[in-house]
Design a protein around this nucleic acid. Sequence first.
DNA 1: GTCGGATGTAAGCGAATGCTTACATGGGGG
DNA 2: CCCCCATGTAAGCATTCGCTTACATCCGAC
Lengths: 186, 186
Amino acid sequence: MSRPRDAAATKAALLDAATKLFGERGFDRTTVRDIASLAGVNQALLFRYYGSKDALFATVLATQSRELLEDSPAEHLLRNVLLRIMEERPRPEDHPLYAVLRSSHHDSAAEVVRRQMGEEYARALSSLTDAEDAELRADLVLAWVVGIGVLRGVFGKQPLADADAATVTALVTQAASVLLEHTRLG
Amino acid sequence: MSRPRDAAATKAALLDAATKLFGERGFDRTTVRDIASLAGVNQALLFRYYGSKDALFATVLATQSRELLEDSPAEHLLRNVLLRIMEERPRPEDHPLYAVLRSSHHDSAAEVVRRQMGEEYARALSSLTDAEDAELRADLVLAWVVGIGVLRGVFGKQPLADADAATVTALVTQAASVLLEHTRLG
DNA sequence: GTCGGATGTAAGCGAATGCTTACATGGGGG
DNA sequence: CCCCCATGTAAGCATTCGCTTACATCCGAC
């Protein structure tokens, strides 16, 4: 049976709704009333449980950031992230990249979380090469993933938006391997 | 001497201010009061000369889009765009990419202009390879440029944000050439 | 010189937003 | 049983936003 008075469930519903809406519309164009409405609760509870819209946004990013990278060893991170971005056809906006990209946001804890998320990706990727500028190369590969996400999700650029996931993944990993592979003479 | 009553100069000042602020903050976080204030004119003139904030934004994008691609033949387009993004250290936000990237959303004519801008880049790039999926490859290269711009300008991701322009350009063009070069057996 | 339209200004309207407050209610422990 | 506090609600406050309106002022045509 449903439990109408359940703080934990209400908090979770707010977080889920916020995750979805921030991802779809970005920070500015998502209102606390929208979030509360989608969660089916009163908007005052958002402030009771999360303090502010900014703090809720930071929580969304922190939660998703923590869930990342757990499944993918570094060797397959690029491939897996690309496949996820390309394949989740109906709802690619669930990917945390979207919430971040759609919210150019300066102040608040979100800035820290956002940067930290990039750091985690880049650190994992940089382990794949022993070049001197490994971190710069990792940043460039991360930039590629981000750019593909933007062109697909934000611009809707064709033919990329509807391209076959395997084809795109193959092309990108092939080109990126120029930057990330270990020196063959090692 | 200055001409205090000069409609053309006022219009231009508003466009300049809007270009700068939209590029720095994006559409949502730029207010018409900010634009008018930076231009040194009354905000009512913004509506007299451009009709609405949306229309002004569309004008900004259309103006910058028209100025693009005029200097660069296709062979050097990637290189030149990369250098421009990487080198304009103090004010990279002048690049029209930034105004678009920071304003991911919204209907109106801006959507059309934004997509058209991507089309022009992609068409130029796709001429560089004779592969079957030339357009997809061009999209991927365009995505890379966009992603680098995002990581630099929006995220401020290090070490990319302060990396040497020539180094970045060399790495990217080298890897991208895997996608864009003509088949060697032709 | 003066009249009229082009240019610029001050003030504010209605709506939306983030957030707060005062109050209702229900369910578990004594 | 009943009381108390966690949970949920309704209403509104203060601010900001895009945009409008009513008015002042300057300059060129005649």
